[in-house]
Design a protein around this nucleic acid. Structure first.
Lengths: 153, 153
DNA sequence: TCACATTTAATTGTTCGCAATTGAATGTCG
DNA sequence: CGACATTCAATTGCGAACAATTAAATGTGA
């Protein structure tokens, strides 16, 4: 009969790590998105920033960062690349000169229409019902929020 | 009464993206792991490599890559850093000189004992029962595998 | 008003992650 | 055996991600 793997080692086994499940799923998503986003000329993090801006633009960098859990060290160069691609404009706020406001250009707004094809393709690749995906998403968000609550306490 | 948000925009809303749930959960995990792994002198991806090697070492780079879904472009420099930290040894296989075998040093083996404290802390931070976490992990792995199946077809 | 703390982006340096390419070793087929 | 393809690791270049620091603008309290 097959030898049972040591029980004391179970907590350190790779396949028992939920963090690795999440980590590897994130990379899998990235690889599925890649060819879709190439057509839009966006990377995946850039796509996330555009999602935020398509909901509401003319917002400070900080707001985008809070929404995506990213800091200026990540966002500043990313936003400069979006500016170089003529998708956004970066302007100092006149009320508070510490803030840099990010606004969509006409091109940036227009890209939203091309982007509508993306979620459909992702749904198809997930090979899963919408309701199942929504349930999973809610569970993962709840876990994420519990993890974030522990940070900095 | 509050205006209902446009239904056509729902698929592009950030909070409806399961990919963003996964992406942001992965970053949240990373932030929770950071202080724990700092004590071991490891980054999170380095920790994953060590988990693989603690199960079985003296394996080629390729095997580690298949296990973690990473390629040599990521692993080669990472393994060189682990070697510089005296946790692994990198040796060309004599049977097949294309392969580089990764073996743990005594220090690398010893670090496993210190690492046993990590999963407990993560479980506590998750604020969730083991059975719930296992169920979520299995769902996420199944989704990941479906996504990976779509890639390259 | 003035010293001081806080906020906001930007910058620097290190480590991933991946595409694309290279070069050496090995396999395969005529 | 010999041309050819394949495999494997390493390399290069670019774009995140984050810690730590900096600098400027703003807020606060004596």
């Amino acid at each position: 009969m097959p030898r049972k793997p040591s029980a004391v080692d179970a907590p350190l086994r790779l396949d028992n790590q939920i963090c690795f499940a999440v980590y590897s799923a994130a990379h899998a998503f990235n690889r599925v998105y890649k060819p879709l986003l190439d057509r839009l000329g966006l990377t995946y993090p850039q796509y996330l920033v555009m999602l935020v801006l398509w909901e509401r633009d003319d917002v400070p960098v900080k707001d985008i960062g809070e929404r995506l859990f990213l800091d200026s060290g990540t966002l500043t160069p990313l936003l400069k690349r979006l500016e170089a691609a003529h998708l956004v404009r970066r302007t100092r706020s006149s009320e508070d000169e510490r803030q840099v406001l990010i606004a969509l250009t006409a091109q940036g707004h227009a890209l939203k229409e091309k982007a509508r094809a993306v979620p459909q393709s992702i749904l198809a690749a997930s090979d899963c019902s919408v309701s199942e995906l929504v349930a999973m998403k809610d569970e993962i968000v709840a876990l994420r929020d519990r993890l974030n609550a522990v940070i900095g306490e």
